[in-house]
């Protein structure tokens, strides 16, 4: 099954990012195709390489980047990103900035869209 995920909240501040990550990992383990992951609202902060969490904490941006390295399309909304100062230069590898058309395509093409937010 093709599953898409949309994430609305920033990292660490809210559990949405962790729930989404755990859900996606489980979906991959079960053999599903992740159609795409879309970051919207403050969710765009999830993939900045500027974050530097304590050593003993999870590194949320690197975690997403590693998922992106497996070929999953990870998209940061350009409008939401620009508003919040997130640009290409500050992104971790394997994620890209694009428009809401990507969210539209994911929502239309995926069998399921699962939204994580506040």
């Amino acid at each position: 099954m093709k599953i898409a995920v949309c994430i609305y909240e920033g990292p660490y501040n809210h559990e949405a990012s962790d729930s989404a990550y755990n859900f996606i990992k489980a979906a991959i383990d079960k053999g599903h195709e992740i159609q795409g992951i879309f970051f919207y609202h403050d969710g765009v902060y999830n993939v900045t390489k500027l974050m530097e969490p304590p050593q003993d904490d999870r590194h949320i941006a690197n975690r997403w980047s590693a998922l992106g390295a497996t070929g999953i399309d990870i998209v940061v909304c350009i409008a939401a990103a620009k508003r919040r100062g997130i640009v290409d230069d500050v992104l971790v590898p394997n994620v890209r900035i694009s428009g809401l058309g990507q969210l539209t395509m994911m929502t239309i093409q995926a069998d399921r869209m699962v939204v994580f937010g506040d």
């Binding site: 099954m1 599953i3 755990n22 859900f23 990992k25 489980a26 979906a27 383990d29 079960k30 599903h32 399921r112 869209m113 699962v114 939204v115």
Partner: peptide, 14 residues
């Protein structure tokens, strides 16, 4: 668990 969550998503719109 998260695996169970995925199974619920397989069977239902969300």
């Amino acid at each position: 668990d998260y695996s169970g969550f995925v199974e619920l998503v397989e069977k239902n719109k969300v």
